[in-house]
């Protein structure tokens, strides 16, 4: 009970300070934009927030701001899920099959340093102007991260666990699904988290290059019409969505990987 009270109090303090920091930041922003020359370049927070809330009702281009957000999110979910599924399969395949590893690992090492965004021009040339290039970028961001993490995890499974499973009578072909995979989950999850960031970055970038909806498009339209308020509002949406996704991932991790943290 004592520990719980301490925790609640600690959380209270954290939230208190967070609120002070945010309000303070907004305050400084308002003051500098209203009373100094910075106000010529940067709109004040009230303008941004007004625009932001108004866009829930007044559409930008063909959609309201929440519709744009959901469009971007929808794209991410599709590309991301495929990327994660194939990433886990590839990672495990590379770790446990020497042939697979010999063929794919060198390719991976060469391609790895190329950032996701650099693939956008090629994706557009290959897949045309529609939705496909966006899905490709989103997919690639997730796939690369998840594969690498899965590979590392599957390759470093504790050999004692494998030995114990064999000793207890598990057949060789069952080891992959029942020992390698569960033991790799924490690290796969880390890959999924960085993959989600990469996918999200990818969709925004792709929408900025060639799209007619989505949050990335909102931002680039803001730039083309010199509407700084719109740009900042778009960025605010990205911040909120990113925060919500990260929180969601953390909760999911708590459920999936509770066995991993040392409790004693």
């Amino acid at each position: 009970m004592e520990k719980l009270k301490l925790e609640v109090r600690h959380n209270f303090i954290v939230i208190e300070y967070a609120l002070i920091a945010i309000v303070g930041f907004l305050g400084i922003w308002y003051l500098t934009t209203t009373f100094t020359n910075i106000g010529k370049l940067v709109p004040n927070p009230i303008q941004v927030l007004t625009f932001f809330f108004r866009s829930f009702v007044v559409p930008i281009g063909g959609n309201t701001i929440q519709e744009h957000a959901l469009i971007s999110l929808g794209r991410v979910l599709i590309g991301y899920s495929v990327g994660v599924a194939l990433g886990i399969a590839s990672g495990i395949g590379m770790a446990r099959s020497m042939l697979f590893e010999a063929i794919f690992k060198p390719l991976f090492e060469v391609i790895r340093p190329i950032p996701t965004i650099a693939w956008i021009p090629l994706a557009i040339l290959w897949f045309g102007i529609g939705e496909m290039p966006k899905y490709f970028i989103i997919f690639y961001g997730a796939y690369a991260n998840v594969t690498i993490n899965t590979y590392a995890a599957a390759k470093s499974v504790n050999p004692t666990l494998l030995g114990a499973a064999r000793m207890l009578g598990m057949k060789e072909e069952d080891l992959l699904l029942h020992i390698v995979l569960p033991s790799s989950i924490p690290q796969i999850f880390a890959g999924m988290q960085s993959g989600l960031s990469a996918s999200w970055m990818g969709v925004i970038a792709a929408e900025m290059v060639k799209s007619n909806n989505g949050i990335g498009w909102v931002i680039i339209m803001g730039q083309e019409s010199a509407n700084t308020v719109q740009i900042l509002a778009g960025m605010l949406v990205i911040a909120i969505m990113g925060f919500l996704m990260a929180t969601g991932m953390r909760i999911l991790e708590g459920r999936l990987c509770s066995w991993n943290q040392k409790k004693i």
Binding site: T160, L161, A164, M167, L168, P182, S183, I185, W259
Partner: peptide, 15 residues
């Protein structure tokens, strides 16, 4: 399974 082993180090399946 005819030759069971109890190990020294961590060998329980943590999940």
């Amino acid at each position: 399974p005819q030759r069971a082993v109890v190990y020294q180090s961590i060998s329980l399946f943590p999940w």
